[in-house]
């Protein structure tokens, strides 16, 4: 019934919890994070996800000094579901 499960990942960065230190960007092995150009509530630029390529390793999460600025989410897609 079910086909192969395909896993992808994405990163969510909460703009107002980021201080723009750049540690997550350095830590990312896939180089899929970058410093944005707009300012957050505190008046600093903040890190943003380029939109694809995250492998869910968590490196950015642990590199970040803020508790909840970064979340890493795993997305599971069933092949059948994709076809439906």
């Amino acid at each position: 019934m079910t086909g192969k499960i395909k896993k992808t990942h994405r990163v969510e960065i909460i703009a107002d919890e980021c201080k723009g230190c750049g540690r997550c960007i350095n830590a990312c092995p896939k180089k899929v994070l970058e410093m944005g150009t707009v300012f957050n509530f505190m008046g600093t630029t903040y890190a943003v996800y380029k939109g694809s390529g995250c492998i869910g390793c968590g490196g950015c999460f642990y590199a970040c000094p803020e508790p909840g600025a970064i979340s890493v989410i795993e997305i599971s897609e069933d092949d059948n579901e994709v076809q439906q």
């Binding site: 990942h9 869910g56 968590g58 999460f61 642990y62 508790p67 909840g68 970064i70 979340s71 890493v72 989410i73 795993e74 997305i75 599971s76 897609e77 069933d78 579901e81």
Partner: peptide, 14 residues
Amino acid sequence: MSERVKFSRSKGFF
């Protein structure tokens, strides 16, 4: 399709 949070704010923090 389902989503699971792999890494996020710890419950050890308020």
